[in-house]
Amino acid sequence: MSQLDYLAPASAEDAAKALAAGGDTARPLSGGTDLLVQLRAGRLKPGLIVDLKKIPGAIGIREEAGGFVIGAATSGAALGEHAPLVRAWPGVVEATNLIGSTQIQGRASMAGNICNASPAADSVPALVAARATCVVVGPTGRRTVPVEEIPVGPGRTSLAPGEFVLEIRLPPRGFHAADAYLRSIPRTEMDIAVVGVAVNLTLGVDGVITDARIALGAVGPTVIVAREAAAVLVGTRAEDDVLARLDEAARAVCRPISDKRGTAEFRTKITGVLARRVATIAYARAKERI
């Protein structure tokens, strides 16, 4: 029988040491909503689980230098209850809150969502669109990494042995800016995204879009930053003809697979539909702030 040990270190440095010592079979635990499923299914047979929740700052949200710092093990439910965060980053919060049920929200964290490296993770497109970064702690110290550089393929991350995500940082929010996220699922809840689209916009006082960033989920091995599609929006007020061009530009960068959750053709079509819808929501939200 394989042996499994559980540690709950009280500092990030101790956690990194333990993870490094545990090698390939060590796994960090924050919310556990992916880890425990993989344990149970036998897909993962770790020798060591390092619970991050006792590390100071691992749970909680604080405002810092105009932005937000979110502890790795902070639950989705806690994000949804944090009014300043919801006001600044409604898209990031709504994306995170779409992960699983109320029960899952009680535990699941954005850091886990990022590091599980599913192409269909809901929070990741929203974080990428928001230009969020991760503070990664490892045996050799700390580094700051853009969220989109953490997952490198389905189930794979760029984290070195012993490294884990301690914090997620959302940048300071400019005026007249807002984000939004929508996904397509067969039911109304409890599903994995067949397509997810996040749009993050900044407007000028005249309502013209000055900055746009769009991230697409579940249409490639990792989140796709749709730069051409974002460029379509800049300099416009997201009018109907602009949205039609956005639809086309978003579809153009999709590289989906066909699987049990949807065909490549369907995923591509829906990406265009959602891009239009999400841009409309984000635009309306930003415009309200003028």
Binding site: A8, L29, L36, V37, K53, A77, T102, Q103, G106, R107
Partner: peptide, 12 residues
């Protein structure tokens, strides 16, 4: 906080 007890380690 409402959670699924099957997704939490007893040690936690």
């Amino acid at each position: 906080r409402l959670v699924c007890s099957c997704l939490m380690l007893a040690a936690e």
